[in-house]
Write a protein that binds this DNA or RNA. Structure first.
Lengths: 113, 113
DNA sequence: AGATTACATTCCCATATGGGAATATGTCAA
DNA sequence: TTGACATATTCCCATATGGGAATGTAATCT
């Protein structure tokens, strides 16, 4: 097997930096494709393709408005990623406190010098 | 350009499900490669390759113990992902409350039936 | 040194990109 | 209907997989 498809899940979809930018931009308000392309400095076909991936995994939703297609971020689809990363929260807190302890131990030995 | 390398950042590295499993397993305690392979039902070379990717982006740390290499998750490298997903938290809360409101509106109209 | 154990790397290959360019599809206005 | 505008899709291609198999490398033991 090769690498999993970008459309296989939200983790693969958001691995691409431009798709994260798009999600950031569309979180506050729905926007048409051309506006996204202009704002993020991308070609229209490129934006359409990224939106297709995001849509396939439910990260964005669309509605038509005349000739335009208005896309907006579906934040709920990001929640699973948040949950997964959250399970590591207590570990990085532990690690930070250890770093702190070591720093304090070092400053004490410096005092003794 | 093609797809970005899995080693380009943590987002790309954790897109692969087995790598997430490895990170989960190594969060509590450092483990040798063979143990990981056995526990997760993977081939040893496969585990070594995944660990190489995780190490390149700083998601795991290693130390030698005789013939073994002990890997452990570096939770701090996951924090940026947590931060990014966190920026969407208020949006999915809004969306959920909207769903709630609509549900309540519906139940009221049902009452009226 | 020679054998064994534990990992890492390399080679091969089917598969999936993402960008550029060109083209197709869909909608509205005159 | 014809033309213009807004998106979507297709084609081509360089690149990067991840798994399997084989091989390389490092550390330990006798």
């Amino acid at each position: 097997m090769a690498r999993a498809a970008t459309t296989s899940d939200a983790f693969n979809a958001v691995a691409e930096p431009r798709r994260r930018e798009i999600l950031n931009y569309l979180a506050l308000q729905a926007r048409p494709v051309g506006d996204i392309a202009l704002r993020l400095g991308l070609q229209q076909p490129s934006v359409s393709k990224h939106l297709r991936v995001l849509r396939d995994v439910g990260l964005v939703q669309v509605r038509r408005d005349g000739r335009q297609m208005l896309y907006r971020t579906n934040a709920q689809a990001i929640q699973p990623l948040h949950e997964w990363t959250k399970t590591f929260e207590r570990f990085w807190q532990h690690q930070l406190s250890r770093v702190k302890e070591r720093a304090e131990a070092r400053s004490k030995s410096v005092d003794r010098v």
